[in-house]
Design a binder for these strands. Structure first.
Length: 450
RNA sequence: GUGGGCGUAGCUCAGUUGGUCAGAGCGCUUGUCUGUGGAACAAGAGGUCAAGGGUUCAAGUCCCUUCUCCCACCCCA
């Protein structure tokens, strides 16, 4: 019989127990942070109607990466969700009667993109989104930025930069440089390449795109602005932009928001190393309308961004008629998990490859039920317990099994101990062994484990 | 989607200019060992050399195609 190849689809992975223990730690930490800011959990189907996803302003490039999902007799045109933002907009419109505005929700779930896989880039991956629906003011933007900062700090990251920019400012730059609306997307595309090709490269590409030389010069001079440093330096940079873009109303609006966020970051105690103004950060998704954010880890700096987000005030309107101002962020858990590993940021409690804390040994078939009962008592006391299943194996094999699996405690209650109403507890990492009363085994074992 | 690199036992890899080249270490199974692990010794299982096609008397080794993974674009978490 021909063997069926055992493999996952391209760009999609299985997670082993050791992987899941670490992933769960990251998910739990992020969830705790989200909830501490008052975000409520929701979930949505992994499939959406195709019309929900398409034309949402995510961009034509992105739409080509959407997975279709159809069953034989299906009458609906379905697709796997590409992000959690478009589903949220649909969700808000659909459940308006059941939610309270402003609506703060978080959503931790997988999304699918048919890209070519690379390190830190998969076709199925989890996103952790936190969004605030129904608040127009920049306080909401400031708060989602603070969520990013808090979550990364809580996970143990120190060297990262939350880059901020503003779509209104970018629009204003287009006006300032005398660029038509049709040319704006290609302008953004070029500007976004700055960190790869440098400003000179950008200038070259702009010149090739038949922009007037004067426009190119004016633009590049603005983009040259240094948005790093402490709050005072960043405020000074914004002041400089204000003068330069005097008379461009939309740009001034964007600058107002950036100024607010700069003050906010300072008030939140974020250092100048963790925040930066970056006029060349654009973000590909087309639905952003105001402040935009993107975070990169700066120490190992080869894994792309770990966070993206911003304000998208028009998206909900697609599903609701009248729109609702919305802002939010998305953390890329896959890259965070990879980076946590590289930087060794996991606490000792999640370093193991098993959830089992204690192994109850077994001596023979006659006493096996007694072993199962002993395990039950230990579980009652809150321990995670596995019972050894093969009574023919000697004690040495059973201890060896516990050791190789990383189980810290072996529980021994053979005929000798049972006759005296006792249980023997052996701790593997230091070989320490104690004898305790059978009746008190739960508490004793928990204490012995530390 | 475009260009490039890689692919030999579960894992890490060795395989000379095509001709005992199907191997090693680790891991796994069993035994020494029906009450105390990380060891030792012995025996054993496991591979259509990623898949398919071609050149040749002969291919893991050369050529073509496909696929995974990786890298650079594109784009993005």
């Amino acid at each position: 019989m021909a063997r069926v190849p055992a493999r996952t689809p391209k760009g999609m992975r299985d997670y082993l127990p050791a992987d899941m223990i670490k992933r769960r730690y990251v998910f739990d930490t992020v969830r705790d942070v989200f909830e501490s800011f008052g975000f409520e959990p929701i979930d949505t189907p992994v499939l959406e109607l195709r019309e929900t996803l398409f034309g949402s302003g995510m961009g034509e490039d992105a739409e080509k990466l959407v997975y279709y999902a159809q069953h034989a007799g299906g009458k609906e045109e379905l697709a796997l969700r590409y992000d959690l933002t478009v589903p949220l907009s649909r969700f808000v419109a659909e459940h308006e009667n059941d939610i309270k505005l402003p609506f703060r929700r978080y959503h931790i779930a997988p999304v699918w993109r048919g890209e070519r896989p690379q390190k830190g880039r998969y076709r199925e991956f989890y996103q952790c989104d936190a969004d605030i629906v129904g608040v127009r003011g920049p306080a909401a933007d400031a708060e989602v930025m603070q969520v990013v900062y808090t979550a990364l700090r809580r996970l143990g990251f120190a060297d990262f930069t939350i880059k901020m920019n503003n779509r209104k400012l970018l629009t204003g730059l287009g006006i300032y440089a005398g660029i038509s609306d049709e040319q704006l997307p290609s302008l953004y595309r070029i500007i976004d390449k700055t960190d790869k090709i440098g400003l000179d490269g950008v200038a070259g590409m702009l010149a090739e795109s038949n922009l007037p030389a004067e426009s190119v010069t004016r633009l590049v001079n603005i983009l040259r602005l240094d948005g790093t440093g402490d709050a005072q330096q960043r405020l000074a940079a914004i002041g400089h932009l204000r003068e330069e873009l005097d008379g461009v109303a939309i740009a001034q609006e964007g600058l107002d928001e950036l100024e607010y966020l700069t003050y906010a970051a300072d008030a939140f105690g974020m250092s100048g190393d963790n925040v930066a103004l970056d006029l060349t950060m654009v973000r590909g998704l087309g639905y952003y309308t105001g402040p935009i954010f993107e975070t990169v880890i700066t120490k190992p700096d080869n894994l792309g961004s770990v966070q993206g987000g911003g304000r998208y005030d028009e998206l909900v309107g697609r599903f609701r008629g009248q729109s609702l101002p919305t802002t939010g962020i998305s953390l890329g858990i896959e890259r965070l998990v990879d980076l946590m590993e590289m930087l060794d940021l996991y606490p000792a409690s999640v370093s193991g490859t098993t959830v089992v804390q204690a192994l109850v040994t077994v001596f023979d078939e006659d006493s096996q039920l007694g072993s199962l009962r002993l395990a039950a008592d230990l579980r009652e006391a809150g321990l995670r317990v596995e019972t050894y299943m093969d009574p023919r194996k000697n004690l040495g094999k059973q201890i060896g099994y516990a050791d190789s699996k990383g189980i810290g405690l072996v529980v021994i209650a053979g005929p000798d101990e049972q006759a005296q109403g006792l249980v023997r507890l052996k701790r593997l990492h230091d070989g320490e062994e104690i004898v305790v009363q059978r009746a008190a085994v739960g508490a004793e074992a928990a204490a012995f484990l530390g």
